[in-house]
């Protein structure tokens, strides 16, 4: 992406260059924004904080691109994912000290996330999906920040372990270790998800 923006910048005077950068940035941001917001929402489990983290991530990206010797970005999607994940990790770490924090009311989150209506032939499936989805979301709180990042990138974005390692700047073995622990901690929810037992919360052999 910087390649494209860089080529443009070479042909333009400074003021036009800034305008062009902002325009290019705007259209790219619009294409990635929803995914990044949902990623932050899934990692932070808080719509308001996810909104703020998404803004921070794009602001950091813009500031990096604006620099004359900005980063050479091969995969813009992966790059913004890395910025967003790191922003969320910082927030998750600082949460440890914020004992006064409370989760926003669920109706506030629902106002932002307009979930699809529960009508139609597969309404039952949707109800199940919502139940198990909530359970998985709640269980994510039991994971460490890195485990949560690793699991979220795989579960929701279907990233390969190599991609996750690249995003988090870890080696694949470490990612595997985090993933294994995350899956172990979420075992019951995942069993219920993959077997279709939405309501069941008891142990399964």
């Amino acid at each position: 992406m910087t390649g494209m923006m860089g080529e443009m910048a070479e042909r333009m005077p400074a003021s036009a260059e800034a305008g062009a950068l902002l325009r290019d940035f705007g259209s790219w941001m619009a294409s990635e924004q929803k995914r990044i917001f949902l990623l932050c929402q899934r990692m932070l489990q808080d719509a308001e904080e996810a909104d703020s983290a998404t803004q921070d991530a794009f602001l950091k990206a813009y500031q990096a691109l604006k620099k004359a010797n900005g980063p050479e970005v091969e995969d813009a999607s992966r790059w913004i994912t890395r910025i967003a994940v790191n922003t969320c990790l910082d927030r998750l770490r600082s949460r440890k000290w914020q004992f006064w924090r409370r989760r926003p009311a669920s109706e506030d989150e629902a106002a932002i996330l307009d979930l699809t209506p529960e009508t139609g032939p597969d309404a039952e499936e949707r109800i199940f999906a919502r139940q198990i989805g909530s359970r998985i979301a709640a269980a994510l709180n039991a994971l460490s920040a890195r485990q949560r990042a690793v699991f979220t990138l795989r579960h929701f974005e279907d990233r390969t372990l190599e991609e996750i390692a690249d995003i988090l700047k870890l080696d694949v073995g470490t990612v595997k270790a985090h993933m294994f622990r995350a899956v172990s901690k979420l075992r019951q929810e995942l069993r219920d998800l993959y077997s279709g037992r939405g309501e069941r919360k008891g142990g399964v052999a």
């Binding site: 929803k34 995914r35 917001f37 949902l38 932002i112 996330l113 307009d114 979930l115 699809t116 499936e125 199940f128 999906a129 198990i132 989805g133 998985i136 579960h155 929701f156 279907d158 998800l193 993959y194 279709g196």
Partner: peptide
């Protein structure tokens, strides 16, 4: 089955 819970919710 995973796609059931990972389908992106609508964001207004």
């Amino acid at each position: 089955r995973r796609t059931l819970v990972t389908a992106e919710p609508e964001v207004s």
